[in-house]
Amino acid sequence: MNRTREILLVEDSPSDAFLTREALRGLGPRLHVVNDGVEAMQFLRREPPFADAPRPDLILLDLNTPRMDGREVLAAIKQDAHLRCIPVIVLTSSTREADLNVAYDLHANCYVAKPTDFNQFREAIRLIETFWFHLASLPPGEAPR
């Protein structure tokens, strides 16, 4: 299983996207960034302009994204028989218990609060990468369509 792992990051903040990219520097997975929930669903369903998009192995989802927010994206993914087996990690600045509860209610695979310090942030991203791609076993990348 040496194919490149694909991560989809749903994030409207360019700086957070940049930091995530930096945090993953030197690690295997390829990062795709979309700016809001609508784009995320287009990416996942391979609708234009994402007709050639790969199926991600992991989704990093911010809760507060424009147009369609993270909760709606999460609900849409988990209701979609083809998409719901992709692990979704909610990655957000919020430490509100309400957000945490909603995320798990909507079947998020885990909830991670973004640390402010970059070293800790990088550590968090790398831990996620380590856990989901090296320790956990994931379903095969291309589900039958």
Partner: peptide
């Protein structure tokens, strides 16, 4: 995070 992260 943008400030401290980018500088780091």
């Amino acid at each position: 995070r943008a400030i401290s992260g980018s500088v780091q």
